[in-house]
Design a protein around this nucleic acid. Structure first.
Lengths: 360, 360
DNA sequence: TCCTTATATGGGACCGATATCATTTGGCAC
DNA sequence: GTGCCAAATGATATCGGTCCCATATAAGGA
């Protein structure tokens, strides 16, 4: 039944090596269980390959020693780190957090772990973080498209792993893209307000200057202004205020500035629900009635928009589903050894009509 | 000047090995630069050790090949992964996201990378995630205290790396703790409302049942009820509604349920600003005036609380600073080879008086 | 009984870096 | 010129797993 193990036993006096930690290794387990390292490895990765009696000896040894396998070593040997890199502008934004959440949900069970980095909307930081991430040899890279520095793009192409740009639809995707057109968001918002009969239409967003920029937000503003221009309406009501990222407070301050500057403004699109909610709150303080005096719409469908009074009309994108979908695609992609053609998925967007916009 | 390299050159026909990726390794760099691998390693980790001429050759080779060092291999060899594990209940909460942000800020430049996992408030998931994290051999572990399963605690003790419990003050810390007493938050809130002269005082929180539980929130409620009891006031107004995590919507629903159940309630403490803001919004819809009819206070000092009308009275904890402080402590701790005694830091809390609570 | 094949397990090389120690070189004092 | 020391660089073992292939045993067929 049990044959003598063939691996050499350790010398009674182990010579002083580099080993300092007392943490048990697979070798300790194998010795205790009286099997080879390889058998321990098999028991832990695919127990079916090993006889139940052997398996149980190994499990017992693992439990007795409190052995936790070292994935660093395993990764080096198997050339599979189990990491998926995710780079976002910030975590302090419910929608980006939802993306991470969705991704994790899709990856759970597939034995992948997210490696999260964020750039604080800073392109130089994006490049630094990307280098850090690549050094960890992720098996795939997920990041918000579509603007990258030249160097960052080059590193991504050279990485030789699937790259997915999310939350945007780049005109020149690096490889895969799952998202929506921020430009279309802007146009859709403007069209919606135009269709309601408004003529004096404004918008609030962050100032586009500098390396710290919300490019996706910029795209929304570009689409918004474009639609106004096509309708031959003035874009004077488009106000740039403060710096990215926007916030409730940003929205409040920008709203006040815009109304003081353009008292006859009828409807406002905010680059994010955060700004929009802030604007609604500031309007209350200014005794302006929403939507009777001014209509306001936002983007992102944040939870708070559903709860405020009046409830916020907004453009919805399902970010959790976006993350989920990205994760599923990656799991499939990494399971097959083929290299499928680059794909672009538009998850779409939809207007959520609530009470903060009325017909004129 | 230049001596012939002593490392053996690669055979012209490399025998078929396991190497499949074309990614350059340190060996490729060393050959191209005409130096040993060790010299390349030195140039990248401590350039001062190497002559400028040699250094430049190496840098050039690195650039030409687009070489990115493999930290997996480096970690295994140096026994330093550069990972710091962070386990949170969720990322979809601005305060926890702020902790992660602060930690990252402190770690930037120290060449550590956060390895983030979250539990969705599920104890079983905490254990699974912890096992995953430990397999990556983090150099320190940060997690929200103070409740862990037996197994989780044991794994933490055995991990043999610094452990920091945050956002709470455990009665039996595993090692270090940086946080505040959630129990005291509850007592402080109750005391504040009692001092304002209210007698019929209520609270809204999630139901405490099941494995999916917000223990920190529970502690706040425990402190709140305790203070009421000490003041010989009824705790009938303490309503448990729905499940964790709470949300704006949770607050709105719980508020309505509480007011319908106890129409004469005078003041309410919400376990989180999220609930509190939801409650304020629901009150508006019910035509209840805040604070004239009912006073409301929250916890967490979320940004939205500053912007709503009336602005929300709340209990503030600086979560970004908490993360920052944790990160700094870890950097110091990991730099010294001594093992300092376990420390507990109370970052304190303070009441932020705004307009949603009035004197009775 | 012997041979073939499938199943279970082991041996040793190897993944790509760094730690450690050895070696070479150059500079300087005598 | 010789000896010594510091600075620069190299050779090799090693980190802790897994891959690949070899080997031993069991099972089945002629």
């Amino acid at each position: 039944m049990s044959r003598p193990p063939r691996e050499t036993a350790a010398p009674a006096e182990p010579k002083p090596g580099r080993r300092t930690s007392q943490r048990p290794t697979i070798r300790d387990v194998s010795r205790l269980a009286g099997v080879s390292r390889m058998t321990v490895s098999r028991v832990l990765s695919d127990p079916e390959l090993v006889l139940p009696t052997t398996r149980d000896k190994v499990f017992k040894a693992v439990a007795d020693l409190g052995y936790v396998p070292d994935k660093t070593a395993g990764s080096l040997s198997s050339r599979r780190t189990g990491f998926i890199a995710l780079m976002l502008p910030t975590l302090t934004n419910a929608n980006f957090a939802a993306v991470a959440h969705g991704l994790t949900d899709a990856l759970r069970g597939a034995d992948y772990h997210l490696l999260i980095a964020y750039t604080d909307y800073d392109m130089a930081e994006e490049e630094r973080q990307l280098r850090n991430l690549l050094a960890r040899r992720p098996e795939a890279i997920v990041l918000t498209g579509a603007m990258h520095r030249r160097n960052a793009s080059r590193m991504l192409m050279a990485a030789d792993v699937p790259v997915v740009e999310i939350a945007d639809l780049p005109s020149q995707p690096i490889e895969h893209a799952i998202g929506f057109s921020n430009y279309q968001v802007g146009r859709t918002a403007a069209r919606y307000l135009l269709d309601r009969g408004f003529t004096r239409i404004g918008a609030i967003a962050a100032s586009p200057e500098g390396e710290v920029t919300d490019h996706r937000g910029e795209e929304r503003m570009r689409g918004f202004e474009e639609e106004l221009r096509l309708a031959r309406r003035s874009t004077d009501g488009v106000l740039r205020h403060g710096t990215a990222p926007v916030s409730f407070h940003h929205g409040a301050a920008a709203f006040r500035a815009l109304v003081e500057q353009q008292p006859d403004i009828e409807a406002i699109f905010a680059v994010s629900d955060l700004s929009a909610v802030g604007a609604v709150m500031e309007a209350q303080r200014m005794n302006l009635r929403i939507p009777q005096d001014i209509s306001i719409m936002g983007f992102g469908d944040f939870e708070i928009g559903r709860e405020i009074n009046p409830a916020l009309t907004t453009i919805h994108v399902d970010f959790h589903a976006l993350g989920l979908r990205t994760g599923k695609m990656l799991v499939d992609l990494l399971a097959s050894d083929a290299t499928p053609a680059p794909s672009t998925v538009d998850v779409g967007l939809r207007i959520v009509e609530r009470a903060s916009v009325r017909d004129r």
